[in-house]
């Protein structure tokens, strides 16, 4: 009886010391939660979550100050990932994207543009080029498709257009599975 007690107390002490040492020795600097959330966010910097960008939203999530379902461009998938990282309860998206629309980028109708620089100020990634009274243009490769510039344009000359399909960005479609009757294995589990 006594031996058992001593052994277990000894073990408890030993493990306690070990855990204590480990917590000091392998301490993680910074806020890894915010960083890992920031990594999965789509980085459109659209601000639709109510935070000024993806990082602030990630930080708010890490501090458990924000809901998990605010990232609209990320959609359901990102929401699930966020709730996995933060351990917060997953919530249905309030605003659902209409059926997975393909990525779009902003185009400025250069005939209409009056050079007001409003969109330049709005763009979260500085993807719009131009100066006062000069026509603006969007650097397509840098546009995240956040649509922030669309409402601010006073002459409504910004359109969101899907990226044109060419042989250079064409993707092989997935094989048609109507023939295969043993469809997705995941459904059977």
């Amino acid at each position: 009886m006594l031996e058992a007690l001593i052994i277990f107390i000894g073990l408890a002490l030993l493990f306690g010391l070990f855990l204590g040492y480990a917590s000091v020795r392998f301490k993680v600097e910074g806020n890894p939660v915010a960083e890992s959330i920031d990594k999965i966010l789509p980085q459109t910097q659209c601000g639709q979550c109510g935070y000024p960008g993806c990082k602030p939203y990630a930080e708010a999530l890490a501090d458990e100050e924000a809901e998990v379902n605010l990232c609209i461009p990320g959609g359901h998938e990102v929401m699930i990932q966020i709730s996995e990282i933060t351990g917060l309860e997953p919530k249905e998206m309030e605003v659902t994207e209409e059926a997975e629309k393909p990525k779009e980028t902003a185009y400025i109708n250069e005939d209409l543009c009056i050079g007001c620089v409003l969109c330049i100020k709005e763009c979260p990634v500085d993807a719009i080029l131009g100066a006062t009274k000069l026509m603006h243009t969007v650097i397509q490769q840098e546009c995240t498709g956040c649509e922030k510039c669309v409402p601010v344009c006073p002459v409504d000359c910004i359109d969101m257009k899907p990226i044109p399909l060419s042989t250079r960005n064409w993707k092989w479609p997935e094989p048609d599975e109507t023939l295969i009757s043993e469809a997705k294995p995941g459904k059977n589990h």
């Binding site: 980085q43 990082k55 979260p124 990634v125 840098e142 995240t144």
Partner: peptide, 13 residues
């Protein structure tokens, strides 16, 4: 693209 957007956003800030 995401990395780029992030960099550009931080740069802008």
């Amino acid at each position: 693209a995401v990395e780029l957007a992030k960099q550009r956003h931080e740069f802008r800030l």
